[in-house]
């Protein structure tokens, strides 16, 4: 138990610290690397809670794919973040004010938190005890039965994202030479080779 608690505080502290570094690091690449660290620690927190499947999915999807592409973009773009931050001080007072107001609101809300008695009664799906059903199986059961409509809707959203990406970026380039393997293989010496007799000797 002690180890679990220690692990929890370790992971959450690193996650929060990494989160702070994401927004305060001067170098955007460092920001992304810290973001990855934060993802990692969140995955570790999931594991501590017994949600291994979610933890792995978080690593595979966010760290393994999304952050990689993000890192690509950040590395390729030559953004001068120092210049972007020029207006930072100017907007600082207003930003701080809004931040404080939001914080106060949050405090108010959570100060008024009653673990709503009706909330527990409203929980839509019984969570099966982990001993009976492994959490990937449990997720699969609700995802493909109760929430099949939302699952399919999410599929349509991703389809749109794909169409959008293609529509907005794909350009047919007529001037590019493409490889045509069939014509390459079918090429015969007489089509491309011309054998000339070179007269030898004498400056004729």
């Amino acid at each position: 138990m002690i180890i679990q608690a220690l692990a929890f505080y370790l992971f959450s502290a690193v996650a929060i610290a990494a989160g702070v570094m994401v927004i305060s690091a001067r170098n955007p690449v460092h920001s992304v690397l810290f973001l990855i660290l934060a993802f990692f620690n969140s995955a570790a927190l999931f594991v501590l809670m017994g949600a291994e499947f979610l933890a792995m999915i978080l690593v595979v999807v966010y760290v393994g794919a999304v952050a990689v592409l993000f890192l690509f973009v950040v590395m390729m773009l030559d953004i001068n973040f120092v210049e972007l931050r020029q207006g930072f001080l100017q907007y600082l007072p207003v930003g701080t004010l809004i931040g404080i107001i939001l914080l106060l609101e949050l405090v108010l809300i959570f100060g008024g938190w009653v673990a709503a008695p009706e909330a527990a009664a409203n929980v839509a799906i019984e969570i099966p005890p982990p001993a009976e059903l492994h959490n990937s199986a449990a997720l699969g059961r609700v995802l493909y039965t109760k929430y099949i409509y939302l699952f399919q809707a999410a599929g349509m959203i991703l389809l749109i994202a794909m169409i959008g990406a293609i529509v907005l970026t794909l350009r047919a380039r007529p001037d590019v030479r493409r490889q045509r393997i069939a014509s390459q293989v079918a090429r015969r010496p007489e089509d491309v080779l011309e054998i000339k007799k070179v007269p030898s000797g004498g400056a004729g």
């Binding site: 990855i36 291994e52 760290v63």
Partner: peptide, 16 residues
């Protein structure tokens, strides 16, 4: 229980 996912996740990190 999610051994294969773990392997896949770790191998996808090799890129970093």
């Amino acid at each position: 229980n999610v051994g294969i996912m773990y392997l896949f996740a770790i191998s996808s990190l090799g890129i970093y």
